[in-house]
Design a protein around this nucleic acid. Structure first.
Lengths: 232, 232
DNA sequence: GTGATAGATTGATAAATATCAAATTGGACC
DNA sequence: GGTCCAATTTGATATTTATCAATCTATCAC
């Protein structure tokens, strides 16, 4: 495991206040694995064996029921996923697969729990992290319940735009079928939604989307900090 | 505050392992208030001043955006709500109003945070509680994304039935408009969904719903533990 | 360069859901 | 019992979204 990787993991809010020795112990027990695209890492319903940290690439969290499937989140570096199942010693509620070739750090559940029990600063960071995860899902849920498909796409583009430097261009980091599933619509309707946004200055070229009239897009999207602001 | 109330609060997983002195200190700082029906307790976007515990009655957590409103949860006794905002010292993402006349214990945010910082057992319980809240919202989100309105109603009836003793009758503890909003549909469509469930043994008489063919209802609903089981 | 293939787009249609309006029902109050 | 009013149901219609199918496009392997 490269020093770069270690310092990247250490910088995560979850781990930054952890005692050095505990952090080291935990890292010693961890595995760094590379997975090719479309590899399934975890399956919903299975027991949680590891806490996962995406170091490179991206991971799709998805769920299935009764023949249907939906995307719940895309996790990008450097971030953890399925912390709650680890801490509750419960089953996964979502499956996870690599979107692209990815490097993933896998920390055994027992080590996470041991550190949690013995390191108050880590415990505090866990609480903050969990509260943040909870609030993020609440916001996703509000987004889905309070907005139409087109509105959800518009707000997602504005969000990606801001995250990518706000220079008029958005690069999608996963395919459109996954974006559709994430936004709660079919791929066909995603395509149609993009067309609906054309008069609002949205030009689509493959995975590259140019936003040429941000003011108009904003009026249609009506961003709401209590839904769209990842820092709230 | 009645001894009954105190022991009810103490029995909550969140508080049961807390040091006695910390629990007492926190209760000494708390207010027990009675609110009439349709009182707004908190407003989304405001700073979190209290952690709330429903002692009697019920509370609707709801959200608004761009002229639309939706119900996110109904909280019944004895349960807390908006723990994450308290712990993150953040704004509320949802508003809350009483469904009926309710008694609510309000614990100042500072006291909760102080106890969290000084009582490791409390901190541990907080982590478990937050993880549980997170997982509950994930399940709600899956429910909304993976099921049609009729399916959501069917599963909700089965869930209420099990919770209410599984004796063939379900009593709704809030009006149907709220149930509709909770399940992500209009009141009109809720009414229609009930009619759709009639051939599956669902007889509606006001707030009282008789389930006369559980096997048929189950086949239509296709419950999934990873969505519907509150203990998972 | 060619062929194959998966993803995306487009078109047509069906189904699910919302909106609007009117009618009915049940509960509270006098 | 009568009246009022809010909640619910029912009906009609519109809108949104999904499904199915065909076509197009971009990428990859040879």
């Amino acid at each position: 495991m490269r020093p770069d990787d270690i310092s990247e993991v250490r910088k995560l809010h979850l781990f930054e206040d952890m005692q050095d020795s505990n952090f080291q112990t935990m890292l010693n027990a961890a595995y760094l694995q590379t997975f090719p695209a479309q590899s399934e890492l975890i399956r919903e319903g299975d027991s949680a064996d590891f806490l996962y940290v995406v170091m490179e690439g991206s991971i799709e969290l998805f769920a299935k029921s009764n023949g249907r499937e939906t995307t719940m989140a895309i996790v990008r570096p450097v971030n953890t996923f399925i912390l709650a199942a680890v801490l509750k010693d419960a089953v996964y509620l979502m499956s996870a697969r690599t979107v692209e070739r990815s490097r993933v750090l896998m920390i055994p559940t027992d080590n996470v729990r041991t550190a949690f029990e013995s390191d108050p600063d880590f415990a505090r960071s866990i609480v903050t992290e969990l509260a943040g995860c909870y609030r993020a899902v609440i916001k996703d849920h509000k987004n889905l319940k309070l907005r139409s498909a087109v509105e959800r796409l518009a707000n997602r583009l504005i969000k990606y735009h801001a995250e990518q430097g706000a220079n008029g261009v958005v690069e999608l980091f996963h395919d459109k079928r996954t974006l559709a599933a994430l936004l709660g619509m079919t791929p066909e309707n995603l395509s149609r939604a993009f067309n609906t946004l054309k008069p609002y200055g949205v030009e689509v070229k493959g995975n590259c989307i140019k936003l040429t009239d941000l003011a108009a897009l904003d009026v249609l999207a009506k961003p709401n900090q209590l839904i769209d602001d990842r820092t709230v």
